[in-house]
C-alpha cells in the first residue's frame, strides 16, 4: 500500500523514514533464516516482499529526485537509538538461546513491537493525514492484531504450541495502535480526514 502510494503520487509527506528504516532492520535481522531454513514457498516469498518493499520505500524517500523533496525531514525527528539500544539489550538478556542468529531474531521481535512509534509521532504532527498513509498504518496495525487471533487458534489446536516472547511483544505492539485505531474509526464514521490530537 505504502509503496504504491509513493510510486503513484510521487509524494511521501507524512511518511516516517525512521519507521521504514526500523522495519528494514527488523526484517533483515529476523529473516536471516532465509539462508539456512525453508518453511514454505509462501513464507519465503513474503519474507522477500517485506525486505524488498521496505528497501524500495527507503530508496524512494532518500534518493528519488521528486519524492525525496516531499519528505518531512524537520518533523521526522524521533531518536531511534532510544528504541534500538534497549531492544538489543533485551535481546541479549532475554532470549531462548545465546547465539548470534537467535539474539538477532529476538531483537527483531522486540524492535518490531515499537517500530511504528516514529510514524505515529509524525502522524500526530501532521495536520491533515493523507488518506492512504492513514490506511497504511491501519492495515499494518490490523495485520498484527490478526496475529492475536492466529495465536489463540494455534494454541487451541496445536499441542505444545507456545511462544511467550512473541506473544508478549505482539500484544504490546497491538496495544500501541489502540489510540490510533480509535481516531481512525472516528474519522471514518464522520467521513472526515484523519487527524490525531496533539
Amino acid at each position: 500500500v505504502l509503496l504504491l502510494k509513493i510510486h503513484a503520487t510521487k509524494n511521501c509527506s507524512g511518511v516516517s523514514l525512521k519507521t521504514q528504516e526500523l522495519y528494514a532492520i527488523v526484517f533483515v535481522t529476523r529473516y536471516l533464516d532465509l539462508l539456512f531454513s525453508f518453511i514454505s514457498l509462501y513464507n519465503t516469498i513474503m519474507k522477500l516482499i517485506f525486505i524488498g518493499s521496505s528497501a524500495c520505500i527507503i530508496w524512494y524517500i532518500r534518493f528519488h529526485r521528486v519524492v525525496s523533496q516531499t519528505y518531512d525531514r524537520e518533523q521526522d525527528t524521533f531518536r531511534v537509538i532510544f528504541l534500538i539500544l534497549p531492544c538489543l539489550l533485551l535481546g541479549i538478556f532475554i532470549n531462548h538461546e545465546f547465539t548470534i542468529t537467535e539474539i538477532l531474531w529476538t531483537f527483531s521481535i522486540y524492535l518490531e513491537a515499537v517500530a511504528i512509534l516514529p510514524q505515529l509521532v509524525l502522524l500526530q504532527r501532521t495536520k491533515n493525514v493523507d488518506t492512504l498513509t492513514g490506511n497504511y498504518v491501519f492495515l499494518l496495525g490490523g495485520y498484527r492484531a490478526l496475529y492475536l487471533l492466529n495465536w489463540i487458534y494455534r494454541f487451541l489446536t496445536e499441542p505444545g504450541y507456545r511462544q511467550w516472547i512473541v506473544w508478549i511483544s505482539g500484544t504490546i505492539q497491538t496495544a500501541i495502535y489502540c489510540d490510533f485505531f480509535y481516531y481512525y474509526f472516528q474519522s471514518w464514521r464522520r467521513n472526515e480526514k484523519l487527524s490525531l490530537p496533539s
Binding site: D33, S37, I39, S40, N43, M46, K47, F50, H96, W105, Y147, N150, G160, Y161, R162, Q163, W164, I165, V166
Partner: peptide, 10 residues
C-alpha cells in the same frame, strides 16, 4: 521456559 523452535511465522 521452553518453546517450539520452528519459526514459521512472519
Amino acid at each position: 521456559f521452553r518453546e517450539e523452535k520452528e519459526k514459521d511465522e512472519l
